Computed example of a mutant assay.
Amino acid sequence: MATPHAVRDRATPAAPNTGVVHPLWVRITHWLNALAAIVMMLSGWRIYDASPIFPAFRFAPSITLGGWLGGALQWHFAAMWLLVFNGLVYLALNLASGRFVRKFLPVSPRAVLRDFIAALTGKLSHADLRVYNAVQKFAYLFVICDLIVLVLSGLAIWKSVQFPLLRELMGGYDNARVVHFAAMSLLAAFLAVHVAMVALVPRSLLAMLRGR
């Protein structure tokens, strides 16, 4: 009779992790969403400067897009349609393929806190990029919700008369502008943290470029 040691010796060694991390459709929609969000944010800063919510705060023209109010509006609306349609495709494919549940759920406050502490102490593993930790799950779910709020508050500002219910849900036109600004600020914070994390784990960028 073979001993347990002999059975372990004859066992097939574990194959290296060579599976696909991100399928092609995820990579395409990710980069299109990123492009649209950045264009909307930079052009939105120029639009904000034309009528600031907080008069004491303005964005430097050098970090805005559009050159003037009319140009910024054209960039903003063009990127808006890209974000809306590409975002709908991203969500639809994630839900239809079951990827949304596999990648982002379940997530709990306790798990997020645990992984957040592990990240701060340098103990959070990134060995398998196909598996999201709780902090990543929370961050991606958060930014999806934030982008939805951005689009809805933007509609309440752009088509305030045509969407009175949406405008009132935002607390009126002026409050809709505040909601839109707050959602934009949270998106900017997410992008800053996201880029920092990519710098710490550059393999994640390669995976989003080539899929592995």
Rank of each mutant, 00 (worst) to 15 (best):
R8I: 14
L73P: 01
Y90C: 14
G66N: 08
M80L: 13
S153H: 09
A199T: 09
F100I: 03
L147W: 09
L141E: 07
I28Y: 00
H30C: 09
Y140V: 14
R8N: 13
L113I: 07
V201K: 09
V195N: 05
I53A: 00
H126K: 10
H126A: 10
G87W: 10
R46A: 13
L165R: 11
R10P: 09
A139I: 00
V21S: 13
D128K: 01
N86S: 13
M41C: 13
L150Q: 07
N17F: 03
T29E: 13
L209R: 12
M80Y: 01
V143P: 02
A11D: 14
L141Q: 05
L147K: 05
T18H: 05
P52T: 03
A119D: 05
A79S: 10
N175D: 12
M41W: 13
A11R: 13
V201T: 09
P164W: 03
P4M: 06
L69V: 12
G98I: 09
G87Q: 04
I38A: 12
I144D: 11
A127R: 15
S185G: 14
A196V: 08
S153K: 02
F142Y: 05
N94G: 06
V195Y: 03
L120P: 01
P23I: 06
D49M: 02
D146C: 15
F104P: 03
L209P: 03
T18A: 11
A127F: 12
P106Q: 02
A189Q: 08
V178R: 00
R27L: 04
T64W: 05
A119E: 04
V107H: 01
F181G: 03
F116H: 15
L83P: 09
Q162R: 12
L91E: 02
V89N: 07
A56V: 11
R212G: 12
L91F: 11
F181T: 04
V21F: 15
P52E: 01
F85P: 06
K137S: 00
V161N: 13
L186P: 04
V21Y: 15
L165A: 13
Q162G: 08
F104V: 05
A78C: 07
L209Y: 07
